[in-house]
Amino acid sequence: MSAVSEYAHNIKDTVSTIFEGMAVTASHFMRKPYTVQYPDRMPVRVQDTLPFRYRGILEVDLEICTGCLACERACPIDCIVIVADKDQQTRQLLLSQFDIDIAKCMYCGLCSEACPTGSIHHTTEFEGADYSLESLIRRFVKDPVIAYKAKKGPETDPRIAPILSRGMAYLDQWAQPGGEKPAGEEPA
């Protein structure tokens, strides 16, 4: 390419590409903005729009906690502390402490995968800001409670049954490790 034609080409390229770029940006004036006006200008709470698998702040349903310590063992950073002792007289497992340090929790979901009943599970709650690290500890046991013991047949206790069915549904959708659960959707 001779110098003159290169010179002319440079000008032409510059002008035409800028023209094209301006057309793209101009077209954006006519499109809707994408941003979400969090938190006060949304029709619903953002927590309600999050997908089921969203890994938010952990929650424990003590009613169906078996005290098996699977979650405590699965946790890579030891943010779950469970104290479960066998009562010498009643021969029952007594949960006297179930604390989760959600300041330390990294929301990996390994604990809720390990849970046999779906007792420990993630919620869609994510707004956990607080003023001190101590206040970020979730203490689930107020008074020592007896751990849940799986029954042979279906759960009959009307107080526990709905919680357990929720927990099992949670496990179903979470596709328990092992992969035995059927696929969530039909393949093409």
Binding site: D78, D85, D101
Partner: peptide, 12 residues
């Protein structure tokens, strides 16, 4: 230090 105090002295 973990702010959680174990109620029992058992070490994990």
């Amino acid at each position: 230090e973990s702010p959680i105090v174990r109620l029992d002295t058992k070490k994990k």
